[in-house]
Computed example of a mutant assay.
Amino acid sequence: MKYCAFLRGVNVKGTNMKMADVCQVFKEAGMQDVSSVLASGNIVFSSDKKAEDLKKILEKAMSDHFSYEAFLFVKTQKETEAFWNSNPFEKNDDFHTYAFVGSMEVENVLMKEFDAASKVDHEKGEITNNIFYWQVPKGNTLDSSFGKILGKKSLKDQLTSRNINTFEKILKKMN
């Protein structure tokens, strides 16, 4: 089965790694057809194992190899397609749209955080098919009150985010 692993916290705040090294760790952990998409920690691979088993195996392999506490989320090709296909927002070159990959029910945590956050003009958050999507005007991602929750230590093992365009690139690599 084809999967994508979405790594959290790669190449930010001092956790720097080359994707070729990450791919090698995945291969040594028994994954096949391993390749990376962008330098933000998206690894496409094949395995006969279940996603929940792969998460444990790969987090341990990454933690051991890179000497950091690894967090990643493993999604099947079908689940990865849902992130692209369920986007509720129209494409607009003035906005960034992000989808959040995470643990079960994390979309509800995110919606609660989004509702409580102050917003910039035209900033939106929406849950579609159990996926939280966030649209924010370009240039406001890091300044947004909601954008700051991505760095919350209490959420580091629960989610990661990707620009919606990343999912398109991942799906091209999977196909």
Rank of each mutant, 00 (worst) to 15 (best):
Q32R: 13
K152E: 05
D64R: 15
K78H: 00
L38C: 04
I57Y: 04
F95A: 12
N87D: 05
K91N: 07
F146C: 09
E59M: 10
Y98N: 10
Q135S: 12
T141Y: 02
M1H: 07
A39R: 12
R8A: 02
M19I: 03
E81R: 11
L58A: 08
K112G: 04
E90K: 14
P137N: 03
F89T: 09
K75R: 15
P137V: 09
D48R: 13
L7R: 07
S161I: 07
L142P: 03
V12W: 00
Y133G: 03
I131N: 04
S86V: 02
C4K: 03
G147H: 06
S161A: 12
A61P: 14
T141G: 06
K78V: 01
S118P: 04
K152V: 04
M62E: 07
N175H: 03
G41A: 02
L171C: 04
N130W: 01
N11Q: 10
D33C: 11
L142E: 05
S63M: 11
I131F: 05
S145K: 14
K173G: 01
Y68G: 02
D53M: 13
S36F: 00
M111G: 04
L72V: 11
D121Y: 09
N16P: 04
L150N: 12
K148W: 10
L7N: 03
G102V: 12
S67H: 13
L72D: 04
Y3P: 00
E123G: 13
G9R: 02
L72P: 09
L155E: 00
N92D: 15
D121G: 11
S63I: 13
Q32P: 02
A51T: 11
Y3T: 01
M31S: 09
K152I: 00
A116C: 06
K60C: 00
K27D: 00
K153L: 09
D33W: 05
T160I: 09
Q24N: 13
F132P: 14
N140I: 02
G125P: 10
K124W: 00
S86Q: 07
K119R: 14
K91D: 06
S47A: 13
F26W: 08
T128I: 12
S144L: 15
F71M: 14
S161W: 01
S118Y: 05
R162Q: 09
E52L: 12
G139P: 08
K91T: 07
K75N: 08
E123V: 15
V34Q: 07
